[in-house]
Design a protein around this nucleic acid. Sequence first.
DNA 1: TTTGATGCAAAGACTTTGCATGCTT
DNA 2: AAGCATGCAAAGTCTTTGCATCAAA
Lengths: 145, 145
Amino acid sequence: MQPVESKRIFQEHGVRYTDRRHAVYTGLSKTTSHPTAEELKYLVSDAGCEVSTATIYNTLDLFCRKGLVRRLLMPSGGDRYDADLKEHLHLRLEDTGEVLDVPLDLAETLLKELDHKVIAQIEARMGVGIERLGVHLVGHRATDD
Amino acid sequence: MQPVESKRIFQEHGVRYTDRRHAVYTGLSKTTSHPTAEELKYLVSDAGCEVSTATIYNTLDLFCRKGLVRRLLMPSGGDRYDADLKEHLHLRLEDTGEVLDVPLDLAETLLKELDHKVIAQIEARMGVGIERLGVHLVGHRATDD
DNA sequence: TTTGATGCAAAGACTTTGCATGCTT
DNA sequence: AAGCATGCAAAGTCTTTGCATCAAA
């Protein structure tokens, strides 16, 4: 990911460009480990850009609000973040706390089965607008059995 | 819900019976508001049983581990709890933070569409065992539009 | 120049823990 | 009687805030 790339993405989402934001965004984009805020702080700092704790949290929150990044809720705190916005599925391993990506083709197959007509019915019956829908899986390593 | 009822449920799940646990469990069972730990503390206390903060958290955590109750993760802290274990769907309203139940028939229709064969494929391809699967909806009141 | 980003340290929200006391079995 | 459950207050974890400084538009 080039600086020019994140610059464009920031502009498209109405986010001012700074070196910290660039470092946070590219750091998150390059990993598939779904880091916590603190993990990302060290990840970014190892890559040569010191970012304070406050800025990490502010930046990630901004990115979430602007739709550049998604927040993955975790039981017992320590939310994780993901810069991959393609509709994909996460699988959380209960024993380790890791979050893995489900292969895209399988994720798509599963999500395609959710009927939009049912969503529309839910909206009508409940008098709400549905903005997002998420599916999450919880499991464990098969070898632990 | 009678005392005898929760007594039986506790026994079935290997949970010792106490008056606080009874109060917490029946308090949670009687509401559809998916309260936070603290809300439930006051709810239970209004019903005539004082329970300390530590005990509320310990008890809810025990209930979750024993499978009597489910924890609903919320963005920015303050998890909520639900004693209704029937497979049902929750809709979180972003503006108010409320969590509503999706009508059961619609929830079932939606969940039935998720193909078990795909789940099995995910398990095989990723080398994991999948224990649970959750769908969550995020929306807003239609009248806010 | 004006607006907003950053860091620091302190405060804050939510949850857990250690230990003494009391209740269940 | 033995083994947990409970409460209290303190500590812990994760996150946000106030304010002074500095950078981007």
